[in-house]
Structures are given as C-alpha cells and as structure tokens.
C-alpha cells in the first residue's frame, strides 16, 4: 500500500469520483478530479458552497473515501486503506484545524493540545514538554490551564492549531480556519500558518471563502461543481 515515487508530488488525486446518495439517487460531487500538491506547498481552495471543498478536505483527511480513483499522500494510498488504517494514519501524519475550533469543553487548553499525544508512547513528562513548546509557539505560553470557554475566538483557534501541530505532522489541513474570527485575529492565525509553512516546512491545504485569507497561500485553486476551474499563484 505504498506509492513509490521519489520525485512525485506529496499529494496526488487521480480521477477521483465521489457522490452522495440521497434517497435512491446519487448526487455527484466529483466526476473526474485530479490534483497534485508538492511537499511544502501552501494551497488555498476556494469555491462556492456545494462545490465540494469540504468533501475534498474530508478525503484528504482520510475520514471519507472516494468512490473510485486514487488518493495518495506521501507513500500511503488512502483509497485502498480501511477505516482503522486510515485512523492510524491520521494520528501520525496529519493535523487538522477546524472553523469552529472543535475543542473539547471539559478539557483545558493544555489538555486539548495533549489529546493527539495520548496516542503515542510518551511519558506524561514528555507530553507536557511538547505541549508547553507548541503553546509557546502559538503565543499562548502560560495559558495552558485556561478553559476554552474563557478564551477569545482567536485564542481558541491558536489552541486548535497547537493541537494540530503538536505531533509535528507533515500535513496540515485547515477547514475555514478564520471563518469565525475578526479580521485582526484572522490575520494572526494566517500569519501563523504561513510561518508553519515557510519555517517548519508543513504542507498546508486550506479551504476558505475569504479571498484575503487565500492570499496567504502560495497558490489558490478555485473549485466549482466538482472541478478546478482556475489556479492562481501568489506573487510574493
């Protein structure tokens, strides 16, 4: 179940078909989708509602599967992997940032960040050191004991990002990461994603409705009715 290609892109989608059954009918989302994303790229995916952005992100995250076609990330052929294998793959290879942060309310910030580390054979001390390090990285040093409900939206999203990168995954998927934030907080978060991309080499795929957010990516893909209609590369 490996994809042997030293020079090939990090993410390869080939002839992806995907539809959803509604009653007896199948509504097609993608009929023949192709996409290649090199390692270390920062890609923004834009498009109107219903264009398939979230479905694409779900497939990249391994929580949904294409009906046909191949989906390869790194050396893993996700379309061939079962549910348990994809779950194990997610734990080690991917971080995800949600629009509404999706922090667990009964845990404080540090415990939310620690969650993915519970899946690794680390001592509690090792986990604590890593959590403190990433909270410092996202500008929340010393606020680990604070509960998410007492934090602003921007701070909660920083916790969400810390949780996504605490295992140091090569791939970061962001689902409207600034969709629920004011402009200033949104710029902070996008600046942070850019740092993660430029300085830490993370491959980032970000779904967004916001053209200003998309400007932080190195290229923007427009998705409409299940196909990419336009690609724009950033000037900077």
């Amino acid at each position: 179940m490996t994809y042997d290609s030293t020079q090939s892109p990090y993410i390869v989608l080939n002839a992806i078909r995907k539809g959803y059954r509604i009653g007896s009918e199948t509504v097609p989302i993608f009929s023949n989708l192709d996409l290649e994303i090199p390692r270390g790229d920062f890609v923004a995916i834009m498009g109107p509602s219903g264009s398939g952005k979230s479905t694409l992100l779900s497939m990249l995250a391994g929580i949904d599967r294409p009906d046909s076609g191949s989906l390869c990330i790194g050396t893993c052929l996700l379309h061939q992997m079962g549910e348990a294998a994809r779950t194990a793959w997610r734990a080690g290879n991917m971080g995800i940032v949600f629009q509404f942060y999706n922090l667990l309310p009964m845990l404080n910030a540090a415990e939310n960040v620690e969650l993915p580390l519970l899946l690794r054979p680390l001592s509690s001390k090792e986990r604590r050191v890593r959590v403190e390090k990433v909270l410092d990285l996202v500008g929340l040093a010393g606020r680990g004991n604070q509960h998410p409900k007492l934090m602003s939206g921007g701070q909660q999203q920083r916790v969400g990002i810390a949780r996504a990168i605490v295992t140091d995954p090569p791939l970061l998927l962001c689902d409207e990461p600034t969709g629920d934030l004011d402009r200033k907080s949104a710029e902070d978060i996008l600046g942070m994603l850019r740092v993660l991309n430029k300085e830490m080499g993370k491959t980032i795929v970000m779904v967004t409705h916001d053209p200003q957010a998309a400007q932080y990516a190195s290229r923007t893909l427009h998705l409409d009715k299940g196909i990419f209609t336009e690609e724009r590369r950033a000037a900077r």
Binding site: A61, I63, E83, A84, T87, A88, W89, R90, A91, G92, I96, F98, N102, L104, L115, P116, L119, R163
Partner: peptide
C-alpha cells in the same frame, strides 16, 4: 457525537 467525530479525526481508534 460531534466530539467523538473530532476524536476520530484526531486519530483515536474505535478501541480507544
């Protein structure tokens, strides 16, 4: 249910 979905997305297996 939603939080369990988040945990599954983070890589928590069915067993965990």
């Amino acid at each position: 249910n939603f939080e369990i979905g988040v945990l599954k997305t983070l890589g928590f297996s069915d067993f965990r």
